Simulated assay, not measured.
Amino acid sequence: MKAIVYTHHGLPIDDANALVEMDIPQPVPGPRDLLVAVSAVSVNPVDTKVRAGVKTTAPRVLGFDAVGTVAAVGEGVTLFKEGDEVYYAGALNRPGSNAEFQLVDERIVGHKPRTLDDAHAAALPLTALTAWEMLFDRLKIAEGGHEGESILIIGAGGGVGSILVQLARRLTKLTVIGSASREETAQWVRELGAHHVIDHSKPLGPQLEALGIAHVDHLVSLTHTDAYYEQIVEIVKPQGQFGLIDDPHALDATKLKRKAISLHWESMFTRSTYETPDMIKQHELLDRVAALIDDGTLRTTLGEHFGPITAENLRRAHQRIESHKAKGKIVLEGF
């Protein structure tokens, strides 16, 4: 089967060898696996981080988000059958979605939203899981609650932010503040439902004060947390919450002590990596998100369609992600 792989980590993305096409054997499903014929994928920052930093001794298939059709099932599968249309975010410790066929554990797979085509559905899984787990599992925000409280989302125009803004606005009573540094992404965040948008290239505190918000109850930093950390400590309320998903070089948690700010780190790969007892919750969450898409509560976050799934197009997508100028999600479709 055709696959897009990397064979040497750390190559700059403008090097033609950074991602290459290769024929590899089609995998065989284990007991709880689905063999999925992949039809569309999207690209996430984690793809670029793995390609740049994780050594490999054999060709490694990247890709996490995917939409496809179940081609075969393992003997222990109970949630799906051949022919089902599915979407999922995959796992760090298994070959990825940039291939014609992929194996994925049924417990982290959802039924594709009925109202979306493959490309628009492919934009959703990883970011939806990350945003949902951050808001409801890590920060313990209650659906329908928290009237009078506020949440600031730094980097709200990216993939995770685009879903997190919607979840916070549609499923809670929080005042939602998003940050964006370009007018294009600021308008995107407004369209997704943010009550207010501020510019994270400028000091955050004065902009919040201009909105009549001295401090925020909850803050989620999705990018460049190192650069904003000192400001974060100042603008979160005493006994407030601070969540993040990126990888700061250093984070002095003692600075949170004087205000008793709680720290919450989210990684949607934790459940699949460690096969936690609640691993099946990701299946349930993806089905819930699909229902919310189908009833019009949430919308897809597809930002750009880069064409077929080829090495050249994936290199372009990685380059766009690394530029930090992506709006929503970058999707590729078909081999």
Rank of each mutant, 00 (worst) to 15 (best):
H264A: 08
I280H: 15
L285M: 13
H249N: 11
E275W: 13
N313W: 04
D278F: 03
F306M: 14
L285V: 14
K281P: 00
E312N: 13
L298W: 00
E234I: 07
D294R: 05
H283P: 02
T297D: 04
R288S: 09
Q241N: 06
E275S: 15
T276S: 07
L222E: 03
F269D: 05
D278M: 02
V233G: 10
Y228G: 03
P248T: 05
D217G: 11
L219H: 00
E234T: 14
Q282G: 00
T270N: 15
I245N: 02
P238G: 10
Q231D: 15
Q231Y: 08
G303M: 05
S272T: 12
A260S: 15
V236L: 08
P238N: 12
K237D: 06
D252S: 11
E234C: 07
H283V: 03
E304H: 05
I309C: 05
H264E: 03
R258I: 12
T254P: 05
Q239N: 12
S272G: 03
T223M: 12
D226G: 06
M268A: 11
A260I: 08
G307V: 08
M268V: 13
A260R: 15
M268L: 13
L256G: 02
E266T: 12
A260M: 11
A227Q: 14
S272F: 06
I261A: 09
P277R: 05
I232V: 15
L298D: 00
A260Y: 12
I235W: 01
S267V: 13
Y274W: 13
E284M: 07
K237G: 03
D226H: 04
T270P: 07
Q241F: 07
K259E: 09
R258E: 12
R258K: 15
A250Q: 15
E266L: 09
A311I: 06
L251C: 00
D247F: 15
A291S: 12
H249P: 09
H215C: 09
V236E: 08
A253R: 07
D217N: 14
K255F: 01
D247I: 15
L292P: 00
K237C: 01
W265D: 07
A227I: 01
I261C: 10
V220C: 06
V236D: 07
H215I: 04
L244Q: 06
E312G: 14
Q282T: 00
T270K: 14
Y274K: 10
R288Y: 11
T273G: 11
R299L: 05
L219E: 00
E230C: 04
A311G: 13
I232G: 08
Y274E: 06
S267G: 13
D294W: 06
L298H: 01
P277S: 04
Y228K: 08
H218Q: 01
L292D: 00
A290Q: 10
H218C: 01
L244K: 09
M268Y: 06
Y274A: 09
L256S: 03
T270W: 14
E266D: 10
K259A: 10
G296W: 08
A290H: 10
P277F: 01
H283F: 01
G243D: 01
V233P: 11
L285Q: 12
L292V: 03
T276E: 03
I245S: 05
K257M: 14
D294Q: 04
K255P: 00
A253F: 07
V236A: 08
P277D: 04
H224I: 01
A290P: 13
E230N: 13
G296H: 08
R288M: 09
E284G: 01
T254D: 11
L256I: 04
E230F: 02
E234K: 15
T225Y: 06
T301R: 03
